[in-house]
Nucleic acid binder design. Structure first.
Lengths: 173, 173
DNA sequence: ATCGCAGAGTTCGAAATCGAATTATGTGAT
DNA sequence: ATCACATAATTCGATTTCGAACTCTGCGAT
């Protein structure tokens, strides 16, 4: 085991060292290897998205709104509070963010006819177009990133993550 | 395959639907299942950390500084610009953040004796103590979360993520 | 030697975010 | 019906963050 490491990439070295720090502070290794990798990957991906979104003149926070609406907006849209929660932001911040996005024509705001306290935010045509453009671009990178994994390995990876997420949600409830 | 889903958790349903949205917008499914899960898990974990850190009166941003210093600070510490990069924040924001943290006694600032342009930020005793406390607490949760996975599965999961991260870094360079 | 240039950190004004208070609508009890 | 209460969104003042301009140190060319 002691000898020339075959071809330990720089990233792998860094992560290994990070895990060691956490273990030294009293954590479990098999746990930290997974957790550190999840965060590391998410962080790198986000970094990539940021650059890409900047090209489209969309901030990370605005993207959170766009993608949430695209995923769960349905026909009617979503309320500002739901969006604020999805974007991890205070409701008051969402008010301003929506102001900007509406002014730019990405979303529309309307009061819920069934309950006039509620406001419904929905994607405009322009918003949808932007969403699709961004998705297609990012999928290209993501496909490249997952290139080294076979289809079976991808499924396996997704399955394992499914289990963890499910576990976390159970714990959280 | 058509019939009563065995016990499709709420989270799994949501994720499946999200993936479908991305696929509809022109993305590849096997890719999106992985990516969506990675983000979903990271997001849930971060949410958890936020609550936990709030108990210790530490903001997410401050934690980014603490943990970066703990991992890579070595004996001498790190420069503000490195910390700003690690925390995904503008250098000027880091200046203020360090002001606050130094005032609270979590970090110390000193000019590099070798190069007086540079500033070195290092963890104080108090900073280290806080780091260790947080790590130990979060490891408890993380261990619970990974509970359903055998040791072999954890290793497998970490290995798969390793490959993806390596691939992303290669692409990025 | 000194002059200009590059790099690191800070300062400053503008913008974004936050938490608390405010407004307005719906709901339930009497 | 009316009143108290709950809920959703917005407004407001304070805090945090950002990007650009500024300052200071070190380095290389002449």
């Amino acid at each position: 085991m002691a000898g020339t490491p075959k071809r330990s990439s720089k990233a792998a070295e860094v992560i290994k060292q990070d895990v060691a720090t956490y273990v030294a502070a009293g954590a479990d290794e098999s746990v930290q290897r997974v957790i550190t990798n999840v965060h590391g990957l998410a962080r790198r991906l986000n970094h990539w998205y940021d650059r890409q979104l900047a090209d489209l003149d969309v901030s990370t926070g605005e993207w959170a709104v766009l993608s949430k609406l695209a995923r769960d907006g349905g026909d009617r849209g979503l309320s500002p509070s739901v969006l604020a929660d999805a974007a991890n932001v205070a409701p008051s911040s969402m008010t301003h963010r929506l102001d900007r996005m509406a002014e730019r024509g990405l979303v529309s705001r309307s009061t819920d006819p069934d309950n006039r306290v509620r406001v419904l935010v929905a994607l405009t045509e322009e918003g949808w177009r932007l969403f699709r453009d961004a998705i297609r671009e990012s999928d290209m990178v993501e496909s490249d990133v997952l290139g080294p994994l076979s289809r079976a390995e991808r499924a396996q990876l997704a399955d394992l993550l499914d289990v963890v997420i499910e576990s976390l949600d159970t714990l959280d409830a």
